[in-house]
Amino acid sequence: MDDAALARVRDALDGHVPVGDLDDDGHELFYDFFPFVGPHPEMVKFFAQMRERGGGVGHDDQGRLVRGLPGGGVDVVRDAGGKPIGTAH
């Protein structure tokens, strides 16, 4: 990878260019380094606001499918085995 390509990866890691603008090698390098850099502050802010408003869906640390509730709570939609539970079916 040449210096210009490495510079594009650094710019993507810093949040100055979209990751989608990188070529395949750039994507690979970006995701190799991303855990060390951490998410961009604007991304952290966006997801914090989404959690506060509710509506975000994902898996918790127990493998359950959960939906965010306004104020930061969660509603368990499906247990880790895929069985529907809670009020959301």
Rank of each mutant, 00 (worst) to 15 (best):
F47A: 05
F36R: 15
V66F: 02
P18G: 04
P18I: 06
P41H: 05
V76M: 05
L69M: 10
V44G: 12
G71V: 00
G56D: 12
F34H: 15
L22S: 08
K45M: 08
D60R: 01
H59A: 12
D61Q: 07
G54V: 05
F33A: 14
G72V: 00
D79E: 03
D61P: 00
D25W: 11
L69H: 03
F46R: 14
F34E: 15
G63L: 04
V76E: 00
E52A: 10
V19S: 03
D32G: 14
P35V: 12
G72A: 00
G58W: 03
D32H: 15
A80N: 10
G71H: 02
V37Q: 13
R67E: 09
F46K: 13
Y31I: 12
G72P: 01
F30L: 09
H59G: 06
G73L: 01
D61S: 10
Y31N: 11
G73R: 02
V66M: 05
V76D: 01
G81P: 00
D32R: 15
G58I: 04
D21A: 13
D24Y: 04
D24T: 14
A48S: 12
V66E: 04
H40L: 07
D60F: 00
V74L: 12
G82I: 03
L22V: 04
G71E: 01
H59P: 03
V57W: 05
G20M: 07
R64Y: 01
H27D: 13
F47W: 14
V57A: 11
H40E: 07
D21I: 06
G58H: 05
R64E: 03
G20E: 11
G82K: 05
D24R: 11
V37N: 11
G68H: 00
G81C: 05
E28M: 13
F47Q: 13
P70G: 00
V74D: 07
F30D: 07
D24H: 09
V74Q: 13
D60V: 02
G54M: 02
F47K: 08
F33G: 13
V74I: 12
F30R: 12
G68R: 02
M43S: 14
G71R: 02
H27R: 14
G73K: 01
V44A: 12
D60Q: 04
L22Y: 10
F36C: 12
F36H: 15
D21C: 08
D24I: 07
V57K: 03
R51L: 06
G26S: 10
Q49I: 00
G54R: 01
F47V: 13
G72I: 00
A48G: 06
D75G: 10
E52V: 01
R67Y: 00
